[in-house]
Structure formats: structure tokens, C-alpha cells
Design a protein around this nucleic acid. Structure first.
Lengths: 168, 168
DNA sequence: TTATATTTTCAGAAAATATTGAAAATACGA
DNA sequence: TCGTATTTTCAATATTTTCTGAAAATATAA
């Protein structure tokens, strides 16, 4: 397998992984193309590399920039916009995890908290049972959420990983 | 809000959370219905509770049983099968995480490993760059993967969580 | 064994999601 | 300013995923 084939395999694998994690396939592939590129790429380059439409390329790039893991790069004397990918995997693992946590976990923790409060004074057997179950889940997700915040704020992620390897 | 409304809200919230994490909405809702139930439920009970088809109820239940977070319960003198949900959140957090890791992460780690090996001896600037990038990602995902295995095997998850709270 | 209850399967329908492509908006140089 | 290159938007279309419902398979009781 030559280098180009290896790169292609990486792009495909990355796209498949993205799909499984609820990240749009095109978005994941665009990131992959930028990761394997040696130079900044334009929208047209990406359209050509993945044979996707301009609209798709544009929206995927925008999403990656929203995530903060792809940057615009101005090339001197060029009117087009060029893009490069953040290559530090820790940076994007943390950014994406934080964003997803905020969007997906935090609202659930909030609802669980409300349900817990609302059923607090229900003294029926059924009410106490429900309250107990919700409390358990709330405690668990709440702990995970707090832990995630601590890991993500301040770049202690890498440190943490090393630490864990020692502990376990 | 009365108890029934609270339960309904829980079911809806749980379904929404599931969708966002790539778990089918029906599957998540079936688990929720079983979690809030006071007694074992039959397929018909679940169909009625969520107004879903028999096929959907059956497949969702099967998937939850495959995950190992819903059990069959035989009721004396009853011909129908009844189901109950595992209520220990640690048990299913670990089971689901393990399963998803195995299905989604491990193959990627494997491909990355192969790509790393294949490009090891490419001495061109481009080849070295690609190899370096793949190696970084592979090291990161490999570490996470190993860490996850350690946490999941043996029920050290809860312990770990307590430990982290002290450390951080 | 036969009749009946229950579960499973799966082709097709419906719903949700992703993608295209061309028009509109914007940015830039002359 | 105008003309052109480039980017953005979004309605229409294509694709993927989920769900239904009825037929087939299986289990149970008599």
C-alpha cells in the first residue's frame, strides 16, 4: 500500500468512526482530508478530494471551525480562503467532548434534578421508588459532569491520563 | 406535576438523550418505561405505554437484553414473557460503554496501528509527516482504550470516581 | 397431536438526516 | 462605483435509519 492509499484509508476510517459517534460523515472526512494534507486546502480542493458538493464542503468546514478544530489560513496574494486542521489531538478531544457534554448531558442533569425535587415529597411507595431511581441516576450523571468539567477546564487531561496509568 | 407526569417526562428525556448518543429512541424509551415501572412488564404493556408496534417493542427489548441491562422475568402461571430493567446505573454505564468501545473504537485503533506500521519506512517528508500524525492519534486512542479496559474490568469504576474527586 | 398463544422476522412505508446545486449574498480588486 | 470571484444559503432530492404490521416460526396447554 502506497502513501496515497494509506491516506485514503485513513480518511475512510475516520469518516466511519465519525458516523458511529453521531458526527456527520462528511464533517469527519473533511477533517481527515485536512489532517493528511501537507498544505492548507481551499473549499475547491476539498470538494475535489471527497467529490462532495460546494454546499456540503462549506457547511462541514464551518462546523469544524465552530468546534474550533479547523482554522482559516490566509495565503498571501490569494483571494480564496484556505483551511488547516488542528493537529494536537488533545485540543480537539477536549473541545468536542466539552461541547457535546454541554449540549447533551447538562440539560438531562437539569431535568433529573427537577424530577428529583418534584417527587421529593411524594410519600407513596411508588413515589419513593421513582424518586430513589431518579436520584441515583442524577447522582451518577452529576458526578460525571462535574468530573468532566474539572478535567476539561485547565489542560489537566494529559496529566490525568499519566496519573491514571500509575494508579491502576 | 403529578407522579405520572414526572414519569412521562423522564421517559421523554431519556429517549432524547439516547438519540443524541446514537442509541435508538425507542430502545432508550423502552428502558425508561421499565425503569419507572413498579412491576415486570410484558411486550404488550410496553407497546401500550409507548404506542409502538410489536416489532419495534420486540427488537428494542432484544437489544436491551443483548446489552445485558434488561432481564426476562418469568411470572408464575403466566405464558407471556415479562421484563425488568437493571436499576444499578454503574452496571449499565459500564456495559454500554464497553460494548460501544469494542464495536467502535477498537477497530479504529487497529486500522491506525496498521497505517502506522505501513508508513513506518516511508522516508519522504510527506510520509514522515503522515506517519507522525497517525502515530499521535494512535497513541491517544490506544491509551484511552487501555484505560477504559482497566476501568471496566473489575468494578473499579465507582472507586475510581471517588479517587478522582480527592485528587482533583 | 391439534389448537391457540406468543414471539420473531422482515419487506415495505414512513420519518429523519444528509447532500446537492443553483440562486442570493458578500468580498475584493480595479 | 462596477464587475467578478468567492462564499453562503436553502429548497429540492437522495440516502439512511427507523418503524410498522402481518406472516412465519415457535412454544405451550389440552
Amino acid at each position: 500500500m502506497d502513501l496515497q492509499a494509506s491516506k485514503q484509508k485513513f480518511i475512510d476510517t475516520w469518516g466511519a468512526l465519525g458516523s458511529e459517534w453521531g458526527i456527520n460523515k462528511s464533517v469527519a472526512q473533511v477533517q481527515a482530508v485536512l489532517l493528511v494534507a501537507t498544505d492548507p486546502l481551499s473549499t475547491d480542493d476539498i470538494m475535489a478530494a471527497l467529490t462532495i458538493s460546494r454546499g456540503n464542503a462549506n457547511m462541514s468546514l464551518r462546523q469544524l471551525m465552530d468546534y474550533g478544530i479547523v482554522y482559516k489560513k490566509v495565503l498571501a496574494g490569494e483571494r480564496k480562503e484556505y483551511f488547516v486542521a488542528e493537529k494536537d489531538i488533545w485540543k480537539w478531544a477536549i473541545k468536542i467532548a466539552m461541547m457535546r457534554k454541554q449540549k447533551e448531558i447538562d440539560p438531562v442533569v437539569q431535568v433529573l434534578h427537577e424530577l428529583k425535587a418534584e417527587t421529593q415529597k411524594d410519600k407513596s411507595e411508588e413515589g419513593r421508588e421513582f424518586n430513589h431511581m431518579v436520584s441515583d441516576i442524577q447522582a451518577f450523571t452529576g458526578q460525571l459532569s462535574t468530573l468532566a468539567d474539572k478535567i476539561f477546564s485547565s489542560n489537566r487531561g494529559e496529566l490525568l491520563l499519566k496519573l491514571l496509568k500509575v494508579i491502576m
